[in-house]
Design a binder for these strands. Structure first.
Length: 490
RNA sequence: CGGGGUGUAGCGCAGCCCGGUUAGCGCAUCUGCUUUGGGAGCAGAGGGUCGUAGGUUCGAAUCCUGCCACCCCGACCA
């Protein structure tokens, strides 16, 4: 088969770029740093959205929508927050164009905005400014709102899905009467993300707390799920934040508690973005293309009819069409590709590139024997299946694929997680093997910075499940209560 | 923003150093015939302001200057 992708071990990032484009997920647009998400890619994103949205609803959240534009003054109200985002904000300064004397159009200098508007890089400020009007009493709490939206962060260097100037995401913003409640919310939503990553994306993750330097701008505590990609680099797949009373104080959001005392509200926020698409690609796919977990695949099964002439074409199409109807009726997402404009071999390769979990092929031999050829994407196994077993085998196999993908990714993550006790050993293994490292750290920002400057690796998180294990910092020898997760990251 | 590179058909490239017929190749597209169980073959066809503006020259894709765009490597980041 003709290779259309760069092999992973030849050039991993080239492989990723090729794959996203060849699988028809997304492409670069006329706007620098912004991508076009194509229908196939968007369909995967819709599957993610649907699953997450249901999980949000199941945990008591409701959706709302806040403006794309944020008055500049809002940003300056929370010092850490403004500093965190100032360098990557797009700003709207004018509201009108006019015809230029030289032909074409130009910005009308007379249409300058009184107050410039920031295109949201995140919505804490506009939302907390709004919450002020919604909250007077403890009876108004909690507020559990999520929004699905686009945000803009003017990045220097971009990559499809992994880092784009504009991206799609959801951001949850909650308001609570107590710190405990807000913290519990942040922790709960991280669990939701971990469950989604593992059960839907088949992507194992490590849950933990960020160090103070890696914290979200304006948060008191940031939690994340970290996944290990096939090239040995970590990817932060979701975050939640305990915001304390920072935004409530900045926007003067207070409530009267049960004792009749005025208090500032406690907050959390949490989000995942289209970056999950990149994580999905880099977790399971191979040199022949995308490999999708069945629960997120736009099509779980694709059927390709085989024929040599018009008569056979009609027969194979009818046969395949029946199979399609049976599978659809059984509740599977199934596509019949009976186009006569492409040959079977081309279709096989294309659907492998697009990661369809199961492919069925049916031709004269199958009609004769009442069978169908079934091929599974993850293991490349093929078998001839009597059609009476179709629904049962497909159901079983989709579950097997979903499980196999997770098991393989988990085994890979575990095999590439190394406990190290010396800084020298860490540096050597980081270059030769990569992956996650569990090491002792003295808890200081200085040591953290030194590791980052010298190795480009960062402390990804302090894992929740790290056991108490007193030791000595691998860099300074100072005491450390437990190991932290370190890796080079996207 | 620093360093490097590239702009030629929808995509990928050659041609440029050393200026000179009608700018070429692969893939893709279109037509016809043969094909169709792993990315088909043959024959034919269409498609170009050579990034852009100026300059040098009898003559510029080719030489010179400015500008623009994009890519790669750094610093920053979900």
């Amino acid at each position: 088969m003709a290779k259309v992708l760069t092999a992973r071990d030849e050039n991993y990032s080239q492989w990723y770029n090729d794959l996203v484009i060849k699988a028809d997920m997304a492409e670069n647009s006329a706007v620098r740093g912004c991508m076009v998400i194509k229908p196939y890619g968007y369909s995967i994103w819709e599957k993610m959205q649907a699953a997450l949205d249901q999980m949000f609803k199941d945990t008591g959240h409701v959706n709302a929508y806040f403006p794309l534009f944020i008055p500049k003054s809002f940003f300056s109200k929370e010092a850490d927050h403004v500093e965190g985002f100032a360098k990557e904000c797009a700003v709207v300064t004018h509201y009108r164009l006019r015809t230029s004397e030289k032909g074409g159009i130009e910005v009308d200098p007379d249409a300058k905005l009184e107050e410039e508007l920031i295109v949201r890089p995140t919505s804490e400020t506009i939302i907390w400014n709004t919450y002020r009007n919604w909250i007077q009493s403890y009876r108004d709490l909690p507020i559990l709102v999520n929004q699905w939206a686009n945000v803009v962060r003017w990045e220097m260097r971009t990559r499809l899905f992994l880092r784009t100037a504009e991206f799609l995401w959801q951001e949850g913003h909650t308001a609570h009467a107590t710190a405990q409640e807000a913290m519990a919310e942040a922790r709960q939503m991280l669990e939701v993300y971990a469950t989604f990553a593992q059960e839907w994306m088949a992507m194992p993750v490590i849950k933990g707390s960020k160090t103070p330097t890696e914290r979200f701008a304006g948060a008191l505590d940031t939690f994340s799920i970290e996944a290990l990609m096939q090239d040995g680099k970590a990817l932060q797949a979701g975050t939640s934040h305990f915001l304390g009373q920072n935004f409530a104080k900045a926007f003067d959001v207070r409530f009267t508690n049960k004792q009749g005392v005025m208090e500032h509200v406690w907050a959390s926020s949490w989000g995942v973005s289209t970056r999950l698409m990149g994580a999905l690609v880099m977790t399971h796919s191979d040199d022949d293309g995308l490999v999708l977990p069945p629960r997120l695949a736009p099509f779980q099964v694709v059927i390709v009819p085989i024929y040599k002439n018009d008569e056979q074409m009609e027969q194979s199409r009818a046969y395949a069409s029946e199979l399609r109807a049976r599978l659809a009726k059984a509740g599977f997402r199934v596509k019949l590709d009976d186009r006569d404009t492409h040959k079977p071999g081309w279709k096989f390769a294309q659907y492998e590139l697009q990661g369809v979990p199961i492919r069925l092929a049916a031709g004269p031999r199958d009609i004769e024997a009442q069978t169908v050829e079934l091929a599974r994407r993850d293991t490349r196994e093929k078998q001839s299946l009597p059609i009476e077993k179709l629904e049962a085998v497909v159901a079983e196999m989709l579950e097997a694929i979903q499980k196999n993908l997770f098991d393989k990714a988990l085994a890979r993550t575990q095999a590439n997680t190394t406990r190290v006790d010396s800084y020298q050993e860490f540096k050597e293994l980081l270059d030769s093997k990569g992956g996650f490292f569990l090491a002792h750290w003295d808890g200081t920002a200085e040591t953290e910075k030194r590791i980052k400057d010298e190795t480009k690796a960062t402390i990804r998180c302090i894992p929740f499940d790290a056991p108490d294990e007193p030791g000595q910092c691998m860099v300074t020898g100072q005491p450390s209560p437990r190991r932290v997760l370190i890796a080079r990251a996207y």
